[in-house]
Design a protein around this nucleic acid. Structure first.
Lengths: 233, 233
DNA sequence: CAGTGGTCTAGACCACTTG
DNA sequence: AAGTGGTCTAGACCACTGC
């Protein structure tokens, strides 16, 4: 089994990283140094580095160099009983900031129409900052009555926290977790490379009358975020 | 805001895909056609295609061309009450096949020692096939007594299904869901590109006495798999 | 065989970072 | 100014696909 040059180089660098030869935060050899060390062209050296960034092992800083990535994940519990994001992260010492990009009434998109029985809904797009660093893009559709009533508060706080504060209780959340790859827009918002893995948490919240009142999608950086659950018989 | 050439090209192709100009399964223009259409070098054309594959929008087939990817995800329910993978997927019309790569007694790795109170455990590495196509790499550590007793059956069936069939009931599962990017080995096993997003389901199963009996990690293709949950107050 | 993508080279210019 | 990575070109050879 013969590997392409760029792969043999990136695998060799990977071994050095995983074995501790290069530690977390260390600078890797520059492109020129790699060209000399492995006697390859610049494109091949760059391809090797690209292989490593695609595996999330290193991050590249323009004008500075290539550095071994450091991983530390924040956990959000899906377990019953229900816990809200802000409270859960606060326990882990993470402060959540909110930067609302869009808050407006829109015609309900067709995918959402079957869930929220409405023709007009409020659409909110926001970026969540974890300790000041962008970590999540959230798109939420809210029933018009609720969106209109609590707009100023919704703009600055998490949706569920706001609703609960006004006595609107969430009784049940249906959720799916999947993953995708960052498109250009999202990659810019979350400050990651194109194609960076993202965790998608798609949810629908119901009130006590089993009416869907909120539907949305939270797209978080896969390298910074994970979900936990406890399942019982 | 000026974008690099390769990005303007890939964004333009992306629009054509999302708007339906190119449909699912269609062939995109070849590298040479892109070079002509956008008057760029081959490297730039290739970079544009690479941007699309990194977003999971297209797949490349050597000697044939570049094709718009088709997405269809299989869902695994995390919700209570507990449902096992085989039963859950069977309901969705997906047949699960198992290809065991490793099944052997090993010294317990340090990360696992705190969970399974043992010095020797059975390690099983297997690939799960969904309707014959590789979709998941599973690494499981099993208490030695159980691994030895049911080896032949464990090799060919899902762990929990086998244990339940022998009266060993799982009472609780602690799980986390995160995502990563395929390294070279995993990318070869799951037939994806380096860096492909993967969903990691890390779990510990406990019996009625609240003893951990199984600990493991299922790494699934992010483009084929997702998890669902229902959370109640 | 022609057409496709995969790998690789040498060399150029630009933008950002640091001293 | 020197060093870093980012973009881009032109051109070569190879391996796989299908006719």
């Amino acid at each position: 089994m013969i590997l392409p040059l760029h792969l043999t180089i990136s695998e060799q660098l990977r071994d050095r990283i995983l074995s501790g030869g290069y530690r977390s935060g260390d600078r890797l050899p520059s492109e020129h140094q790699l060209m000399a060390e492995f006697a390859v062209s610049r494109i091949t050296a760059r391809r090797a580095i690209s292989n490593l960034t695609q595996q999330g092992l290193v991050t590249v800083k323009r004008g500075k160099g290539v550095f071994v990535a450091t991983q530390q994940k924040v956990t959000y519990s899906l377990s019953n009983p229900m816990v809200f994001l802000e409270a859960d992260l606060d326990r882990q010492g993470v402060k959540v900031g909110i930067q609302t990009l869009v808050f407006e009434a829109v015609a309900v998109p067709s995918e959402v129409a079957a869930i929220l029985k409405c023709s007009i809904v409020y659409l909110q797009k926001k970026i969540l900052l974890f300790n000041g660093i962008p970590g999540c893009v959230d798109v939420t559709y809210i029933l018009p009555k609720l969106g209109a009533a609590y707009e100023s508060e919704l703009r600055q706080h998490m949706t569920f926290t706001t609703l609960e504060r006004h006595g609107i209780e969430i009784d049940k959340i249906d959720a799916t977790i999947s993953c995708t790859q960052a498109d250009y827009e999202t990659s810019a918002q979350l400050e990651v490379t194109l194609g960076h893995p993202l965790i998608v948490y798609r949810h629908t919240a119901y009130n006590q009358d089993n009416c869907a009142i909120v539907h949305g999608e939270s797209i978080s950086r896969g390298d910074r975020f994970c979900y936990s659950a406890q399942i019982v018989r």
